[in-house]
Every structure is written in C-alpha cells, then in structure tokens.
C-alpha cells in the first residue's frame, strides 16, 4: 500500500483499507488516516501496527510462538527456554514469585533420610502381611527391607556415595 495515495484527498499516503458497507453493499477504499476518520464519522480507527511488531517470534526448534507461551504458560521444547529467556523469566516471576532455580539440590544428599522413611513403612506393611498370613507378600517385603539395609550400610561407610 505504500505507493498509493488516499482515494479521497489524493494527497496523503493511503494507510488504511477502509471497508464501507452501505445497504449491504461492500466497498473497499484505500484511505489516509485523516480521511478514514472523517468517513467513519468520528469512530476510532485502529491503525495496524508496524509490520515488524506483527511478526510472531517462534522457537526455531519446535515452532512454538511466543504468544502461545504467554497465554498457555507452556513451552514446546527445551530450546524455548533459551529463545524466550527474558519473557519466561517475567512470566515465572508473576507465576512463582521467583524466576531462577536458586536452590539446587542433589538428591543424593537426602538418600539416607528417604531410605529410613521407606523402611519404616515397609516394616508396617510386613507386620500387616504376617498378621493376615500373606506369607508370599511378607517374604517379598523382607527382601525389600534387607535391600534397603544393605544400601544404608553402604551409604554409612561411603557417606557421599
């Protein structure tokens, strides 16, 4: 549309595709902003934004557009996290109050604690199995408890695994 002039004043460049509907008949006019507003009787004309702003940024790996990330709060692949890093940080701050993974936890450090909790539960289950004379289950549970004991013993002698 850049090279065309307004079809009403003929002076200013035509920026707007104005569709007029009179008694069911459509007519397309290429108008400048000023004439378009006059033609529309004072109704506000929404001028299309700059072309560069209209282009969707998408992830080169999976094709997920940024607008989807913003509305669905989902990404399509790990690369999205790099491509949209700034935007994702803003979204996470709103969602979670924080945008960075500050607390890195190595699951190894909590292994002993977890094993003790699990062993405690298995022992309770074992008691129940013995009570209800489900010996097959009891034998299996005993095996599992022994396995945990072995692991605990090993961790005790090699605390950092």
């Amino acid at each position: 549309m850049q090279n065309r002039y307004c079809e009403i004043c003929g002076e200013r460049p035509a920026e707007i595709e104005y569709i007029e509907v009179i008694r069911g008949k459509k007519r397309l006019l290429h108008l400048c902003k000023v004439c378009a507003e006059k033609q529309a009787n004072g109704l506000r004309i929404l001028v299309p934004e700059e072309e560069s702003e209209k282009i969707e940024i998408t992830c080169p790996e999976c094709g997920t557009p940024l607008s989807y990330v913003k509305t669905a709060l989902r990404v399509g692949c790990p690369v999205c996290y790099n491509v949209f890093e700034g935007e994702i940080k803003d979204l996470l701050k709103k969602l979670q109050g924080s945008s960075t993974f500050s607390v890195h936890e190595d699951l190894k450090s909590s292994e002993e604690k977890d094993l003790i909790v699990i062993k405690h539960r298995l022992k309770k289950e074992l008691e129940k199995a013995v009570e209800s004379e489900d010996f097959e289950k009891a034998a299996r549970l005993r095996d599992e408890i022994n396995e945990i004991d072995r692991r605990l013993k090993w961790l005790g002698s090699n605390p950092l695994d």
Binding site: V69, L73, R74, V75, G76, P78, Y81, E85, I88, L91, L92, L95, Q96, T100, F101, H104, L107, K108, S110, E111, D114, L115, I118
Partner: peptide, 27 residues
C-alpha cells in the same frame, strides 16, 4: 525421591542452570 534417584541413574534429564529442570508447563 527414591524412584527419581533410580531414574536419574538411567537418564539425563533436561536441565539448565538458570531454570532447573525444564518442563512443558511453566508451573
């Protein structure tokens, strides 16, 4: 956690320093 520990021995999970484990939902 016990199960995750076993799975971590088998697989490399998607992870980055800034965000931690990368998941499809930002929640």
């Amino acid at each position: 956690r016990h199960r995750m520990r076993a799975l971590e021995r088998e697989f490399n999970f998607s992870y980055n320093e800034t965000f931690g484990y990368l998941t499809s939902s930002l929640t």
